[in-house]
Write a protein that binds this DNA or RNA. Structure first.
Lengths: 335, 335
DNA sequence: TGTATTAGGTTATGCGATTAACCTATTGAA
DNA sequence: TTCAATAGGTTAATCGCATAACCTAATACA
């Protein structure tokens, strides 16, 4: 039923009465030492027989695999829907395209621990890794245990050349939000985040800078039902603010739904701002005001940096992608 | 910098003074002909040296790769955001988990043509394929050109055992919508779809059955801007219906946004129903009434069927996953 | 006592592609 | 005429693992 034999270099060579080396050289354009007629003959035969290289053999024979691993932290906060997250799925989508364009292959993996990443790299002889969603300690750990270059897709601004690092200007994004809210007359502003480190903190600091005052910071739990409980118990506290800045669109939209269910009108009663510029943000009502990231540019930058690192293991760069406030309908003018 | 040598079976064997065959056999649990103490000794050493098999060599040496390909049609309608589509990303997310649980590896690929799928399978020696988003002709084409089993993730109900086929009961889904709309007093109902074949038609037929009358069918173009134009020019036509059933949530939500921009209130002026039960459907306002699919069950079913087919190439099954109407806020009672 | 069986391994080959090293015939130069 | 160089290849080793075929010593059996 499904048993046609696959065409190998050896088959081509035998049918043509040449050596496998000749066929292989033609395949790779190393034709300096092969006559034009032989080249043409081999090329024709390859085409005719529909030759497709066997990757397992190819990988084994050369020392670079031309495979790039994309590893996403399978964080509990995604509740098993990691690849459905809008930031993650956009990353995968564009990374996949960029990797293919560059003539590489992508291997995609969820991982809970850095040791899984190390094993993954070793077992597939990956040429490089793009990694998403771990924290700084874990990246250092990875750095100490791996032999290949990697680029942190959601990097930190303050990292000093220790690995490839793609970041957005979190501080500036927060600042843009702050300036906008200030221009709209808000001064009682709350910032919510699940995390008080790294980029969340930068966004918060930017917010304060833009507002020109110290906004309050509220840490929320990572589990959805605990957040719900917390919001319920702190409803009056939340209502005490005229605007709330959530450090991700996901939290912003969740909070918005929660408030709407409690009869709070957005933006009339409370204004809300998110961060990420995910697709749903512009599909909901009211449209979410948020800080938009250029996912395509980010993926392009990540892959082009990684390829540079693969070709020269001394390079490590820290690249920041600009962000831009995207004004929706979730903030009202406040006097 | 990144240059530790990787541990091979040969290294383990030499350090222990045994043959590579012994180590390999221990690795695969073929310990009938190996003394307990040797087994223990080898296992200890493997653990201690952190042995990780080289996949390229493993694949090459055995005739099954233990790789499952997941191929998604890179359809123009996604406008380059294929993996961000909610149906697709949910599929990838769950398929990835199921494949990993089964001890296989996933290779993910976008493809525009079936020939790419054939090459992909050949180059990686895939054991099987899960394929999403192509049309029936293309699947037949694939069937004729490939040597390995494949399962159609978004299959058709009327296919007769020609490949592994996972489908939902499109007809029943449409029927549930029809019955619901009928119970809400709607009789002027329009069905919109970009396609007049297969599952879209089944959903439409189910709709009519449930309504107990023949609803109108309206074909829309696949390009977003052309749809926009069409909707604009046919606004009065659309307003002539009390309820519109879009055969996917994507179209339903898009239409809802369009109507809202035109000042049409949903559901007060027009009721809207979608199909798929994607995540955004429950996040928008008003919450979309839609036909929910169980994505996890679908992925589990697809992988378990594919594994059956891999182990016995005679099997081909046609499995239908039940669907359930999820009532939101986008349909009003009409008298 | 002689033969069969079993325990506990080892040897050697192949998977398909890559590539360094080698070979031979022809041409060119002195 | 002789040697070097070049064109146009071929040979054979290698990548790391799996596995069928083979081997030897000890034990079982009759």
């Amino acid at each position: 039923m499904w048993d046609e034999k696959k065409v190998r270099i050896k088959d081509i060579a035998e049918e043509l009465g040449v050596s496998t080396a000749t066929v292989s050289n033609v395949l790779h354009g190393k034709t300096k030492k092969i006559s034009d007629k032989t080249v043409v003959m081999v090329e024709k035969k390859l085409e005719e027989r529909g030759y497709i290289p066997d990757m397992a053999a190819t990988l084994l024979a050369r020392n670079n695999s031309r495979i790039i691993g994309v590893v996403v932290n399978d964080h509990p906060k995604y509740e098993g829907h990691t690849f459905e997250d809008s930031f993650i799925s956009a990353a995968i989508n564009h990374l996949s395209d960029e990797i293919e364009i560059s003539g590489y292959f992508m291997m995609l993996k969820k991982a809970k621990k850095i040791s899984e990443v190390v094993n993954f790299a070793s077992m597939w002889n990956l040429d490089g890794i793009v990694i998403i969603g771990f924290c700084e300690d874990e990246y250092q750990d990875l750095r100490d245990h791996i032999r290949i270059p990697f680029v942190i897709y959601d990097g930190f601004l303050d990292v000093q050349n220790r690995f490839g690092n793609i970041t957005i200007d979190d501080f500036d994004g927060g600042k843009q939000v702050g300036e906008y809210l200030r221009s709209m007359g808000h001064s009682k502003v709350l910032c919510i985040a699940d995390n008080d480190i790294c980029m969340d903190l930068l966004r918060y600091k930017g917010l304060c800078e833009g507002l020109n005052l110290k906004a309050d910071f509220f840490k929320i739990p990572m589990e959805a039902d605990e957040r719900e409980k917390l919001y319920l118990s702190k409803l009056d506290f939340l209502k005490g603010y005229t605007a709330i800045f959530a450090v991700s669109d996901y939290y912003a939209m969740e909070l918005m739904r929660f408030l709407q269910r409690q009869g709070v009108v957005v933006p009339d009663d409370i204004s809300i701002v998110g961060f990420d510029g995910c697709r749903e943000a512009s599909l909901i009502t009211p449209k979410l005001t948020t800080v938009a990231q250029n996912n395509l540019l980010r993926a392009q930058t990540a892959i082009s940096l990684l390829l540079k690192m693969i070709n020269n293991s001394e390079i490590t760069e820290n690249i920041s992608i600009p962000v831009k406030l995207s004004i929706g309908e979730s903030v009202r003018k406040f006097n």
